[in-house]
């Protein structure tokens, strides 16, 4: 059940093309995960789309590991219609660090990156319209971070806009 290292032709080609930017490749529960360097995410994605035919962006999300130095994992799941395969690209990101936006590669990334920004505070460099999407624009705080308590709210915003004292 534990993740095993992955070393197939796809990973080989990536390593040949991008060298050290490809940090690690594992297979967890039979699903391929490739850990890449944050700053080169856009290039690697474009290569995956054009050369490796991963033409659909399935999902783009993040996970917060606050005890790690680079606390965020940005996850990009891709799918190839031709090969009927998925691959997961993962990068580690510190708080405040930038990661390139994938909007130019797949327009689907637009709202997905906005949601990441909204929930985690991750800033995507080059995004055309990086503002909150699910929460109100003036909300303070990024709820999916582990240090944001489950009962916490932006009480100032609630008081001002809803006219009530937040019950939590």
């Amino acid at each position: 059940m534990a993740p095993v290292p992955l070393d197939n032709e796809f990973v080989e080609r990536l390593k040949v093309k991008f060298g050290n930017a490809i940090r690690e490749a594992t297979l967890d529960r039979k699903q391929a995960i490739v850990n890449v360097e944050a700053m080169r995410l856009r290039e690697i994605s474009r290569y995956c789309r054009d050369e490796e035919k991963f033409d659909m962006l399935v999902d783009l999300t993040a996970v917060d590991w606050p005890n790690r130095e680079k606390r965020f994992d940005v996850i990009v799941i891709l799918y190839s219609f031709q090969k009927n395969e998925r691959v997961r690209l993962k990068t580690h990101l510190g708080d405040g660090e930038l990661v390139p936006s994938l909007c130019e590669v797949w327009p689907a990334a637009n709202w997905l990156e906005r949601e990441c920004f909204d929930m985690f505070g991750i800033v995507f460099e080059g995004h055309p319209n990086l503002k909150r999407i699910l929460l109100p624009e003036e909300w303070e705080g990024h709820p999916l971070r582990k240090d944001y308590d489950i009962l916490k709210q932006d009480t100032a915003w609630v008081r001002e806009n809803l006219g009530i004292e937040s019950g939590q």
């Binding site: 059940m1 534990a2 967890d28 529960r29 399935v58 997961r88």
Partner: peptide, 9 residues
């Protein structure tokens, strides 16, 4: 579940 991750759709 053992530590790790999965994507299923």
């Amino acid at each position: 579940p053992p530590p790790g991750e999965v994507y299923h759709s």
